[in-house]
Nucleic acid binder design. Structure first.
Lengths: 148, 148
DNA sequence: TCTAATCTATACGCATACGAACGATAATTG
DNA sequence: CAATTATCGTTCGTATGCGTATAGATTAGA
């Protein structure tokens, strides 16, 4: 994570960067990603882990539908899928019913990896929320979900 | 922004992706960026606008210090600075007191752009927070700032 | 003072992230 | 049924964002 230095002489002007939601979201996301990288193994990134968990939930899913379910652009899905394929965590086959589609599913290794990493995922969530009390955490998540 | 499709058959397992703070932060940040793009002009990105505002606040600042103040890696600062230079919104000169440094400041055009765009920045913030009531907004920002 | 640690800017590689465009295929609709 | 539309996966271009490495400059400490 990046050490942030405070501005000493804010010329202000009615617009303080540090009060803007976009800037705060960017920094909070930065911190969450940094915690993820520290805790998670297998060289998995947050989007890769999210995709993996979702594929497990679906069992079998097209690349496009996977992308929609985790809020990834088709172009982004493409890259994430490629990297999971390269790690042999997922496999693909043509959809017999729709020749435009490719169906994704976990490999046996992918399944065991997901199961093994889910506890770490919970640890990431806990550490990211650590600065807040349990009540605050609940309140915060509820509000955050609404501006999503 | 990306249309998110809900999983129908969550095999769950004690780990629901949609409840994880990292995933929610990623999506909220996505949405905030999308709103920014819709409203802002000049082809400025959120980090570019943040840097511009900060340079205005500082008056004159080294590239490195600018980066720290907006939570950007030195490598990232580099790219953002390059693009602002290419748009002629900022200028650079060598620091006479420290030959490692380069001092950044706004060009006249940069100054007028910042002043013109700040109202749009406020609009972005307002729209991003729109799903929440004013009291909720205040509470949310306070909590968000603490996990930053 | 002279060396080691730090700081600054830069460069490269990898991974999101999105817009735009494209070819192939499906679905719709007139 | 033919023509238009929509969907799916892919590729290209641009912009963060971080890790790592490097080189020059500066500072701190022995």
């Amino acid at each position: 994570m990046i050490e942030v230095e405070t501005t000493l002489a804010d010329t202000d002007n009615g617009y303080v960067l540090e009060d803007q939601i976009g800037h705060l979201l960017r920094r909070a996301h930065q911190r969450a990603s940094a915690i993820f990288q520290e805790i998670m193994t297998e060289g998995l990134t947050p989007p890769q882990f999210a995709a993996l968990v979702k594929i497990r939930d679906f069992g079998t899913v097209s690349q496009n539908r996977l992308g929609r379910s985790v809020a990834m652009d088709p172009a982004t899905s493409q890259g994430v899928t490629q990297r999971l394929l390269a790690k042999d965590l997922i496999k693909r086959k043509d959809d017999p019913d729709d020749r435009r589609r490719t169906l994704l599913s976990l490999t046996p290794e992918g399944e065991s990896v997901v199961e093994r990493l889910i506890p770490l995922g919970k640890q990431v969530t806990a550490e990211t929320l650590d600065p807040l009390t349990p009540e605050e955490q609940e309140k915060f998540l509820a509000l955050l979900a609404r501006i999503t």
